[in-house]
Amino acid sequence: MKVNFVSTDAIRNALRYSLTKMQTELIAGQKEVQTGRVADLGLSIGVRTGKAVTLSRDIVRMETIVGTNSLVASRLTATQNALGQISEGSSTFLSALAAAVSGDADQATTRQAAVSMLQSLTGIVNSSFNGEHVFAGVNTDVVPLADYFDASAPGPKDAIDAAFLAEFGFAADDPAADAITADQMTAFLDGALRDEFFGSGWETNWSSASDQGITTRIALNETAETSVSANVEGIRKLTMAAAMVANLFSGDLNDQALIAIADKAVRMVGEALGDIAQTQARVGFTEQRISNATERVEMQIDIFKTFLNELEGVDPYEASTRVNALISQIETSYALTARIQQLSLTRLL
């Protein structure tokens, strides 16, 4: 009869190997408990790993779109508030102009109303949100509207003065300006002065904004223009009305010429209010599109996460039970290893 001997060293090494394996399984199990996902995706789902990776990538992409939509919605809210302030200021300015046309307001009062309107308009149009100018189009890093009252460099006021001088041969504050008729003034307003706001003079002297607005992807297959440019008709008309009254009402023009200016300004402000209302409606429509797109994307994210969880998700209760069992086995293995290490022939003898 043959007897096989097993040394305590062999037993100890076998326990060490088993302990190492259980420690590796414990690390994987703890990771699964914390993340709710299998520790080794490729080992667990095999050839379906590519599908899981694609789903994860699409989820990250859609979550990025949702985050972007939140920022864009906030910017559009700021835009709506700014347009509302412009509309309110325009209504006040319109009342002052109506009084000037009827002869119920003096020249200085009407001019001050125009100055206030122009200053307010410039401040609102040049406002920024999150470090970007709201009305600059894609040129978000530049101030969109030049300051009419900035005398540090040639600007809009100098351009208007030059246009007046070229039209009549003298400045608006020259005593000769008293001879300008209402028809002559109307021709100037509809001709040379209008070109300063609706021709090349606008980009040269007034606006640094781009006509092109910011285009944002609001869903995987949908984009929207999510900004308003200072170059829209309503802002141009309002700027022209305020600037021409602020400029020409400081001169030596006669009452008929001043009434012609005020009458032209009344019509332009009225048109501007309609244009601004249309712009507000367009912004509101875009806000609604973004809200709807965000809801759809969030629903897609939920569906994709459900599919992904079916592929790589784990049962948290089963994973916790497995971790607890491994911890108990490891503790038992440590105890056995300690007992085995204490065995020796000397103690036996």
Rank of each mutant, 00 (worst) to 15 (best):
V53T: 10
E203H: 12
L76S: 07
K264G: 12
N292Y: 10
S56C: 00
Q278W: 00
T306S: 15
R236S: 06
G103P: 01
A246N: 07
A82R: 05
L71M: 09
H133W: 03
K264Q: 15
T223V: 04
R322I: 00
G201R: 03
D183G: 08
T216I: 03
G234V: 06
T54H: 06
D150F: 08
D141F: 01
R12F: 14
L189V: 03
N81P: 05
S120G: 14
S90E: 03
G213V: 06
R111K: 15
I86Y: 02
A179G: 12
G50S: 11
V266P: 06
G50E: 10
R61V: 07
F168N: 02
L273N: 12
Q280N: 10
N309P: 09
A153Q: 15
S127N: 10
Q288N: 14
A219H: 04
D9T: 12
D173L: 01
A114R: 03
S70W: 00
A219Y: 02
A182K: 09
S127K: 05
N309Y: 01
A272N: 05
R37D: 11
R75C: 02
S95Y: 08
T332D: 12
I65A: 01
L19W: 08
G131I: 11
M62R: 09
D40S: 13
T337C: 00
F188P: 02
T337Q: 09
T181R: 05
S200M: 08
L15M: 14
S344T: 14
E271F: 01
I261Q: 01
A293F: 02
D174K: 03
A281P: 00
A172M: 03
L345D: 15
S74Q: 14
E318T: 12
N139K: 07
L43G: 15
V101P: 06
T215F: 00
G103A: 11
Q107K: 14
A52T: 08
S116Y: 00
T204L: 09
A265V: 06
S116G: 13
P154R: 08
H133K: 13
G123W: 00
T110F: 05
D315E: 10
T332V: 06
R217F: 05
A260G: 09
